[in-house]
Amino acid sequence: MTIDRAAVDHVARLARLDLSEEERERMQVELAAILDHAEKIQALDLDGIEPTSHAIPLRNVMRPDEVTPSLPQEVALANAPETEDGRFRVPRIIEDS
């Protein structure tokens, strides 16, 4: 199969990866090769087979709604690249109106 450049650009945008020109070109080739291998399962008759998302049967696990100690603010912020007044600082999110 082939993956066109527009698809790579679209997926890179969805994945928030600012890939270089060279990386985008290589990604086109490598993703196609890996997906070619996966083509084999496209040919399988899988009608009526239930999908498995998880290997063990899962139920929602609830805990009592009790207040327990959580990380102190300074510990939670200790690894942040940038903080201000006890908060995570980020670049502009909303355009000026």
């Binding site: 790579v8 997926v11 890179a12 994945a15 990866l17 993703l31 997906l35 996966a38 399962i41 899988l46």
Partner: peptide
């Protein structure tokens, strides 16, 4: 890591989900 993020994002993206991720989950059942 970038390759796998790209591959995974592609396999989950609109129009490809059933063909890739959905089929893979059924193979998991097999």
């Amino acid at each position: 890591v970038k390759r796998r993020i790209m591959l995974g994002t592609y396999a989950l993206s609109a129009g490809y989900y059933d063909a890739y991720y959905g089929k893979a989950q059924k193979v998991r059942t097999l």
